[in-house]
């Protein structure tokens, strides 16, 4: 795949200081690169900031999506590596939110030389409880999530399908595209949700050799503090920061503190 193909496929945006160290921001399940909007200005002052949409999310090229490649997190990790290679990025600071924290771990384990540091924002290596491990959810809970994605299927397909399909006969749908923020084809979302919430990447954590910062919030319904501590303990030499913030998306609920944590870790020698 050519560099242009990769940047189009993943709707890659590059901004900030051209001579700055590269910081790649990877969004999680349920949204797109817009999620970083509030932390980007602070990061762009010091770094070369690279944003992208996972295939199937945001304004990525959904024709590049295939169930085969994107049914496991490996496909997404492969994309991250292809983006870094296409832009010829070195000593990358890779910031992964939510499921992208594990995608970042997989990418860094595959090409350790490419990455200088990892920032794992509200990570969870495994959402489903397993013996003594408390991921926070039962298998039934995950099935329920997949069901709620399905029940949002009809409402979506009626209005969004022609837009995503790129229907030139219906230009009036162009307006809808601006409202497509965080919208995604529920079928694709369902596959991404399965990959997100049913993956178990606990065994990948001890293999991380890249300096890592784990950032969690005080109250997170998706990735508990216990899970954040687990990630920290499994990655040797990692640092753990608990932000005085609530929710699963600190880049939205506490953008200053989140940006400060990333800058403090990424900028340190």
């Amino acid at each position: 795949m050519s560099a242009v193909d990769v940047t189009t496929r993943n709707n890659v945006t590059v901004l900030g200081r051209e001579d700055g160290p590269a910081v790649v921001l990877a969004h999680g399940f349920g949204c797109d690169q817009n999620l970083w909007r509030l932390v980007v200005p602070a990061l762009a002052e010091r770094f070369r900031v690279v944003l992208f949409d996972h295939v199937g999310s945001g304004r990525s090229d959904s024709s590049a999506w295939s169930a085969g490649r994107y049914s496991t997190l490996d496909g997404y990790a492969e994309d991250v590596l292809e983006i870094c290679s296409a832009l010829d990025l070195r000593d990358v600071v890779l910031v992964g939110h939510s499921v992208s924290a594990m995608i970042a771990v997989l990418a860094a384990n595959r090409e350790p030389d490419r990455f200088a540091k990892l920032v794992l924002l509200t990570p969870s290596p495994c959402y489903v409880d397993d013996g003594d491990y408390r991921g926070g959810f039962s298998r039934d809970d995950i099935d329920e999530l997949l069901e709620s994605l399905d029940s949002n299927y009809l409402g979506w397909s009626a209005t969004m399908a022609p837009v995503i399909m790129g229907n030139p006969d219906r230009p009036e749908l162009g307006g809808e595209l601006t409202d497509s923020f965080c919208r995604t084809d529920p079928m694709i979302a369902g596959v991404f949700a399965r990959a997100t919430f049913l993956s178990d990447n606990r065994a990948d954590l001890p293999k991380v050799a890249t300096p890592t910062l784990v950032v969690q919030t005080a109250q997170d319904a998706i990735a508990s503090q216990e899970v954040g501590r687990f990630v920290h303990e499994q990655i040797a030499g990692s640092e753990l920061v608990t932000l005085d913030a609530t929710g699963h998306c600190p880049q939205l609920s506490a953008p200053e503190a989140t940006a400060a944590a990333i800058i403090g870790f990424a900028g340190a020698r």
Partner: peptide
């Protein structure tokens, strides 16, 4: 909400409200 709905809210609806100001046509339980 049900646990599934809560996960959907935390990962999708909540961020959408913060960033976009509105979210409609949501099927929840």
């Amino acid at each position: 909400l049900t646990v599934g709905g809560r996960m959907y809210y935390e990962t999708h609806i909540g961020p959408m409200l913060t960033m976009h100001g509105e979210a409609g046509g949501l099927a929840l339980e």
